[in-house]
Simulated assay, not measured.
Amino acid sequence: MKKRLIQVLGFLMSSLGWVFVLCSMAMDYWRIVQLGGQGGSFIIKVAWYWSNLWKDCFTDSTAVTNCRDFPVLWSVTPYVQGVRGLLMCGLTLGFFAIVLCFLGMECTFIGGSEKTKDKLLLAGAVFHIAGSVSDVSGYCLYINRVARTTFAATVGPGVLRYTDFHH
C-alpha cells in the first residue's frame, strides 16, 4: 500500500509540473515594461510593451493592443528560439514520461509483469528528470537574458530596460 501511495503521489506531482510548464508556454506576460509617464501623470500618457515566446505586443493608454506574431522560426532571436526548443523538448520528454509512469505503476492493470512495470517506471522517471532539466535550462536561459538587459550599465538602441532603478 505504501509503494502504491508513493507512486501515485509522484505521478500526480510530476504530471502537475508538466501541466505547469505547458501553461507557462502559453502565458502572455513573460516580459513587460512601462513606456512614458516620466515627469508627469502616469494616467495621461502611458503605454505598455510586453512579449512572450510567440509575439511582441504594445498596449497604449486607451487599452488598444497591437501585436506582432513572430513570423518564421529563423527570424526569431536565438535566445527565444533556444528557450522554445528547450521547453518543447522538456514537454515532449515529460509526455513520454507520463505515459511510461502510468503504465509502470503498481495500481494499473496494464503494462505486464512486475519486473516489466518496474522497468517502465524507471524509464519514466529518467524521462521526467531529463525533461525537467531541459525545462529549467530554458527558464534559466530566458531569465539570464532579461537580467543582463535589466542590469546592464548601458544598453544598445532599441533595447528596452525592464526595470528602472535610476530615479
Rank of each mutant, 00 (worst) to 15 (best):
K2G: 08
R4A: 10
V8H: 00
L9R: 10
G10Y: 02
L12M: 10
L16A: 15
L16H: 07
F20C: 09
L22H: 11
S24K: 00
S24D: 06
M27K: 08
D28G: 06
W30G: 08
R31L: 13
Q34D: 11
Q34N: 12
Q38G: 08
A47T: 14
A47E: 15
W54Q: 13
C57K: 04
C57I: 11
C57Q: 06
F58G: 01
D60T: 10
D60V: 07
S61Y: 07
S61R: 10
T62M: 10
N66Q: 15
V72L: 05
V76A: 00
P78V: 12
Y79H: 11
G82T: 13
G82D: 06
V83F: 08
G85V: 05
L86Y: 01
T92K: 02
L93F: 06
L93S: 01
L93K: 02
G94M: 01
F96G: 15
A97W: 02
C101E: 06
C101S: 15
L103V: 13
T108C: 04
T108L: 12
T108A: 00
F109C: 04
G111H: 05
T116L: 04
A123I: 07
A123C: 11
G124C: 08
F127R: 01
F127A: 15
H128Y: 13
H128S: 12
I129S: 05
I129D: 05
G131Y: 02
G131L: 03
G138Q: 04
N144Q: 08
V146R: 12
V146P: 03
A147K: 03
R148D: 14
T149Y: 00
T149P: 00
A152I: 06
A152Y: 03
A153F: 08
L160E: 08
R161H: 07
R161A: 09
Y162N: 11
T163I: 10
D164Q: 10
D164Y: 10
D164A: 07
F165P: 15
H166R: 10
H167Y: 11
